[in-house]
């Protein structure tokens, strides 16, 4: 399943809830304010490091760029994708769960 998270983890429980419920092997895509969750060295970074052992985490490039977050500031293991990558993830998975 593909999970998308569009809220900042500092402002909402969406990412925590998502990571708690996503099965091993799931794809998780951070979009809009969700991309702040990809930042290295934050209060939530350990939670993402842990999750990366079980799931793949992606962040949407254009949303990172808009917010001034360069790739070298992201947690190691998080992959940056463009809109085309978003589409590929959506079509590669049988279901999309949006954590709003």
């Amino acid at each position: 399943m593909l999970h998308t998270v569009n809220k900042s983890p500092f402002d909402s429980q969406s990412l925590k809830t998502c990571l708690g419920l996503a099965r091993s092997g799931s794809d998780i895509l951070l979009i809009e304010d969700g991309v702040y969750g990809a930042l290295v060295g934050t209060a939530h970074a350990a939670m993402l490091d842990q999750a990366l052992k079980e799931v793949s985490i992606y962040a949407l490039g254009p949303d990172l760029k808009a917010r001034g977050l360069p790739e070298d500031r992201l947690i190691r293991g998080i992959k940056v994708v463009g809109f085309d990558g978003f589409v590929e993830l959506a079509s590669a998975n049988d279901k999309v769960q949006s954590w709003l």
Binding site: P62, K65, G68
Partner: peptide
């Protein structure tokens, strides 16, 4: 305060996301 600090983040560039960069 809180996520408000992100408003002042350097290097915001919205060219790929179609929003107005108001930074």
């Amino acid at each position: 305060i809180g996520d408000g600090v992100f408003q002042l983040k350097q290097g915001q560039d919205t060219t790929d996301s179609g929003m107005k960069n108001f930074s």
